[in-house]
């Protein structure tokens, strides 16, 4: 790409975006663009070569992130980005494979794949943009919608218990688990870079605003009141969020108008699926335990 004539001719991440697909489809005030930019910067920070960067997404507003990135991108079906990414990673372990998708895609229709990929410690980076609702289809409640929230399908308030995603991810076996909000872009970027470099199943939840889908039905009255009330939530969160390293994921439930815990919940090492697969011994048919023991002995010697 040629040098810009002036500092205003190009945005620092222009080269990573597909200009011919812009403008994007996201609503004013949406947080997905912020996450996408943090992701691009994290890839640079983690020094992942451009040709090794693979993004797989599902369906929904967040899934559209795939369309705008200028790298290998696979926009799969609703709920299935994790198994699609699993196939890519196992076929070519040199690639850095990320999944960016929404709370509905990853935890409702695709919830089964999430827990199993975490359990078998597939070497993937999963980023969930959690905006508490199904934005693309017009603001229905989802698996992370806080209790008592109003959405277009919970007009009298949500009576379902939402998932606590850091708790779900840590208990399923993820090696790195963090939660940030779109107000915290530098921590988000740095955390994403850590996750990209880390082996195993890494997971970052990004709390993101959806003024159109989730913001509106939770407000009553005029649009200006909605905006105010929406602002109140963010102000409230900004004042009250608690940043912790090694926070207790069991305490990370999100409740309407209450403090949100953000931070890194897990950072552990555990052999990945590919690590253990490489130890299978079809020649002598030894059990994994014996192979590992022998490898350890060899390292000692």
């Amino acid at each position: 790409m040629s040098e810009p004539d002036s500092v205003f001719d190009a945005h620092p991440v222009d080269a990573h975006l597909r200009a011919d697909m812009l403008p994007h489809i996201w609503c004013p005030g949406c947080g997905i663009g912020i996450v996408l930019k943090a992701y691009i910067r994290a890839l640079d920070k983690a020094e992942i070569p451009l040709e090794k960067r693979i993004m797989v997404s599902g369906i929904g507003c967040s899934g559209r992130a795939c369309i705008y990135l200028n790298q290998d991108c696979y926009h799969s079906t609703h709920g299935r980005p994790i198994p699609f990414a699993t196939g890519i990673k196992l076929a070519n372990p040199d690639l850095t494979v990320s999944v960016i998708s929404g709370d509905g895609d990853l935890f409702a229709i695709g919830g089964n794949h999430f827990i199993h990929a975490a359990r078998r410690n597939m070497d993937l980076n999963v980023i969930c943009i959690n905006n508490f609702n199904y934005g693309m289809t017009g603001g229905q409640s989802g698996p992370t919608t806080p209790m008592d929230s109003k959405t277009i399908t919970t007009p009298y308030g949500n009576i379902e218990h939402p998932f606590n995603l850091p708790h779900l991810a840590t208990s399923s076996g993820a090696t790195y688990v963090a939660r940030w909000t779109t107000l915290d872009v530098r921590r988000l970027r740095d955390s994403m870079a850590e996750a990209l470099k880390k082996k195993g199943f890494t997971f970052i939840e990004v709390i993101s605003p959806c003024p159109t889908g989730y913001g509106r039905p939770n407000r009553r009255g005029e649009p200006i009141d909605e905006m105010k009330q929406y602002q109140e939530i963010w102000d409230l969160r900004e004042d009250n969020w608690i940043i912790q390293e090694g926070a207790d994921p069991t305490e990370a439930d999100i409740k309407l108008n209450e403090t949100i815990v953000v931070g890194v919940f897990a950072d552990i090492d555990r052999p990945t699926f590919a690590d253990l697969y490489s130890k299978l011994d079809p020649v002598k048919k030894r059990r994994l335990k014996e192979v590992v023991r022998e490898d350890e002995r060899r390292v000692r010697e």
């Binding site: 699609f84 196939g87 890519i88 076929a91 690639l95």
Partner: peptide, 11 residues
Amino acid sequence: AAILGASCAGV
């Protein structure tokens, strides 16, 4: 989904 992903990576 996994076999599609693997084939996209050339296997």
